[in-house]
Amino acid sequence: MNKLSRLALSAALCALLFPAGFAAHAAPADAPLEARAELGNSKADMYKPIKDTKRIVRDYVQQPPLVPHDVSRYEISKNFNKCMDCHSSSRYVEMNTTRVPVTHFKSRSGQELSNLSPARYFCTQCHVPQVDAKPLVGNTFKK
């Protein structure tokens, strides 16, 4: 190969590599993400969840105890129930929690079940987490 053809070759190589670098630049780097409009619009998001506290005293016998800690990011889905990650009978000792009571393993007619009753699967239907806010309406309930 003579000098000229070698030169041409390296020039061609440069020409090849240049656009490759630029193409990578142009494409995705500054494509905008979606607006976050769907987040943080709920009125409930205005209030801060309470800090972890001790168990909250119940006001009547059959009351589902209030949740004394933040649960805002916990998953309760078909695949996984985060609450049971700490409150199930196999985990409550390790996690220093209260175990899900046996009532939650009974059908509505009181029959014992081998599984958590489907009526109890969605814990936050009955167990209410607390936020740092004034009550919306007055309450005259007496113990």
């Binding site: 078909k78 695949n79 129930n81 196999s90």
Partner: peptide, 21 residues
């Protein structure tokens, strides 16, 4: 686990709900 995405099916030992996970 599951800090940024939803979890895969996990058997939590609570019966039929997620048995086989």
């Amino acid at each position: 686990k599951g800090i940024a995405h939803r979890m895969p099916p996990v058997d939590q030992g609570i019966g039929q709900q997620n048995e086989g996970g």
